[in-house]
Design a binder for these strands. Structure first.
Length: 196
DNA sequence: GTTAGGG
DNA sequence: CCCTAAC
């Protein structure tokens, strides 16, 4: 009867090719601290890595915060991705600017589309979405309602003191344009100034 | 036909 | 993004 230790099995087969050295370390720690039960937390996260490089400040902070010698142990489980992963194939073809996409509801707004929306707001204001659609988004899949909703979301994200987490990473220049356009084009129905 | 706002 | 009351 064959009975072999887990150490005879290639580690990458057991754990599913850890992405880097620290992850390998984590896998072994998981084995030791789990009563001998192997855990393979990386089976589900093979394509879950962000393509961009880690920001320098984050990396250095991680190193200074807890080194390998000081009870270092990272949280288990698959890492949350910071950038939404687009699985829709039509995204690569038609993008958001034509009839090449078969979807009525296309995926997330691109920074280019946001910039165009800012152009439209600066040109048409915020209460003439149908005019803006014909003038700035004539062939886009974005509907009049989409334009209105997107602008509402941008205001929610980039104006006021509510600093919410934004899943669409826009460069500072574009954010400033959004804020300036929002200031110059307040909604026609201002919030009631009465306190209660 | 459009818009604003809630869902 | 959808739905719809209210223009």
């Amino acid at each position: 009867m064959e009975f072999y230790s887990v150490y005879d099995v290639p580690i990458d087969q057991l754990l599913g090719v850890p992405p880097d050295e620290s992850d390998l370390h984590e896998c072994w720690e998981g084995f030791g601290s789990n009563g001998g039960q192997l855990v393979a937390p990386y089976c589900l996260s093979t394509h879950d890595e962000t393509p961009d490089t880690t920001p320098p400040e984050t990396e250095s902070a991680a190193h200074t915060a807890d080194g390998p010698e000081s009870g270092w142990r990272r949280k288990r489980g698959p890492r949350k991705r910071r950038v939404p992963l687009c699985t829709d194939q039509s995204w690569h073809l038609g993008n958001h600017f034509g009839e090449t996409s078969h979807r009525t509801n296309n995926s997330h707004w691109t920074p280019e589309e946001v910039a165009m929306l800012v152009d439209g707001v600066e040109d048409c204001g915020v209460a003439r979405w149908s005019v803006m659609k014909k003038k700035w988004f004539p062939t886009s899949v974005r509907t009049v309602g989409n334009l209105k909703d997107k602008w509402r979301n941008l205001l929610e994200s980039y104006t006021g003191n509510a600093e919410r987490s934004c899943y669409l990473h826009l460069d500072k220049k574009l954010i400033e344009r959004i804020q300036k356009a929002a200031f110059n084009n307040p909604y026609p129905k201002p919030r009631c100034t009465d306190e209660w």
